[in-house]
């Protein structure tokens, strides 16, 4: 009886839809159980393209802080930031040159780049990604 039941369950689980829903439910339950735990603010982007290797803390970019002060288009149209965490090949040379973050973080619009610790404030080893995204909540939390 057990073998037949397991085989039946296996067949059902192989159907992608149900497996996806079960996985989702498990993740959601897990998330529910650990709800009071640490979580980043929605839209926080960690950029760790070069930081770990350079023995700097990774950068935490808070979208919430910036959208109080700037519309999306300022960075994503005028400054050329792609809608892709880590996809912009930002480095300190470009920033010093006034590109990307450096268009504002120049001591005129926002504080200038010698304040390394204000951006480089992430936990070492944190992967480059948008935190708290819907997709992240749907998938197995591999990086937790």
């Amino acid at each position: 009886m057990t073998t037949a039941a397991l085989a039946g369950l296996g067949r059902v689980l192989r159907r992608r839809g149900l497996a996806m829903m079960l996985a989702t439910l498990c993740v959601a339950l897990l998330a529910g159980l650990t709800a009071p735990g640490s979580h980043a603010e929605y839209g926080d982007v960690v950029i760790n393209n070069f930081s770990d290797k350079a023995e700097m803390r990774p950068v935490v970019f808070p979208h919430w802080f910036h959208r109080v002060r700037f519309r999306c288009k300022v960075c994503h149209a005028d400054l050329g930031f792609k809608f892709q965490a880590g996809g912009n090949e930002i480095n300190m040379l470009k920033i010093i040159d006034g590109e990307y973050c450096g268009a504002c973080h120049n001591g005129e619009i926002a504080w200038s780049i010698e304040n390394c610790d204000l951006c480089h404030s992430g936990k070492p080893g944190t992967p480059t990604q948008v935190h708290e995204s819907t997709l992240q909540k749907l998938l197995t939390p591999v990086n937790k």
Partner: peptide, 22 residues
């Protein structure tokens, strides 16, 4: 969440105290 307990900021980062809290 406070920044020093949000899972992405390093609680030991010296710049944390200067950043605005969500």
């Amino acid at each position: 969440r406070p920044l020093d307990d949000d899972g992405v900021h390093d609680p030991a980062a010296p710049g944390l105290q200067y950043l605005q809290k969500p």
